[in-house]
Design a binder for these strands. Sequence first.
DNA 1: TCATTATATCAATCTATATTGATAGATTAG
DNA 2: CTAATCTATCAATATAGATTGATATAATGA
Lengths: 109, 109
Amino acid sequence: MKNAPCCQKGSRSKVDLEKVTEFVKIINEPNRLKILCFLREGEQCVCDIWKTLGIPQNLASHHLKVLKDFGLIDSRQNKEEGRKIIYSSNKEAIKKYAESLNNFLISNL
Amino acid sequence: MKNAPCCQKGSRSKVDLEKVTEFVKIINEPNRLKILCFLREGEQCVCDIWKTLGIPQNLASHHLKVLKDFGLIDSRQNKEEGRKIIYSSNKEAIKKYAESLNNFLISNL
DNA sequence: TCATTATATCAATCTATATTGATAGATTAG
DNA sequence: CTAATCTATCAATATAGATTGATATAATGA
């Protein structure tokens, strides 16, 4: 049984559309995509992230905050070097959002 | 055999990153997502699109142009009512880009 | 203690692009 | 032919958010 189109008021699919819209907004930024990509290699401190991407430190911090607030990455303090904050990708969250987006794009095609 | 991370210079994965970045830019717009969603129902004229979405006609035309220039939708002239331009989704293109994006997001997770 | 390193935050600026308003061209109806 | 309809385009404005610059905090090392 098909839903009403997601573009119309009161559609159940509208929930998916909003979820997808929010996610796309987060990944619509090259540096954030690069961060997600870099974190596939494993967890990384901020200093390695901004140096690797070739962007200023505060810009990296900003994008990391956006990604973390949305739940796509996690952070913890390094035990040995307490100054460093280590970021890692939240694989479950990424998988969940990626699946929603993919379903939205290819459903009914 | 793993590639270099896509965030670094000269990576083969960088091609994917650029492709993904361009695609995400296109779908990072609620009205465009709604248009893609609406076109799942079948091909539609501009007048039905802007009325259904509740946006001005010229705004719909603008977003349709963006989607068409990128290749996600096609258009043709209506045979019966020659004034109308009928838009339809390019399913192959959408599938292709959706697949690239999904691969990018979930690879190596 | 003092200097250095790592990170985060805030305010200001810059930039891309969504939106609006006006209008033109093409088609059809009367 | 004239008016109405459908679509596209252009210029102007509005706006979201990326980037930068300055600075604060905390941890470490000398």
